[in-house]
Write a protein that binds this DNA or RNA. Sequence first.
DNA 1: CTAATGATGTCCT
DNA 2: GGACATCATTAGA
Length: 219
Amino acid sequence: VTAAGPRPQPAGTPFPRDLFEQDASVAARSLLGVLLVREQDGAAPERRVGRIVEVEAYGGEDDRASHARMGPTPRNAPMFGPAGRAYVYLVYGMHHCLNVVTGPEGRAAAILIRALEPIEGQDAMRAARRPGARLLRDHQLASGPGNAAAAFGIDRGHTGLDLCSPDSGLRLVLPSDGFPDDARIAAGPRVGIGYAGEPWASVPWRFRLTDSPALSRGR
DNA sequence: CTAATGATGTCCT
DNA sequence: GGACATCATTAGA
């Protein structure tokens, strides 16, 4: 993964997959500032674009907070697959969460997308949220993992999709104005995984752009 | 503003 | 049967 800074981004350029072929915690940090693009679908005629502002890294069988902690299962199988693909799961029976698979094939790891700052297609995002949430400000449309997936119309049908391919209807795009400064990035413990015990409950694998208004509630 | 709680499906024990 | 990588709503200070 190369230097930050302005770069032209011709249409049809694939996202650099090698970014996801390193440790999940390193890759997660590098995902901050990257754009998630969802092409229009039947229900949402607008293109939707969001900047990733909050992520969490999850490891393999050793990470007691990871879905991969029990080894391969039908649900977590995508985590053991090739890097750069989507792993989407359902939490609490109703919310979808989008992850980017990292690491070499056979080694489970993934990055949870926890919050996005809407850049384009805010109306489509609002329409995709549950009825009660449609009076929100733009920066709240995708703040939180369940909210982000809902705003982009993501569900388990997207699992396995190659997020690095320019042909995918859901894909990643490098930021046209470069990666954010380290000074804007903060790390802290992951949310909602107290059951994992130490050191997993405290390891600082949640990364966020501190000055973004679109962060999730549990800072 | 914070705290409590119900919704709801899938996976693991 | 219990727990869950959560969210929206309601109740209370």
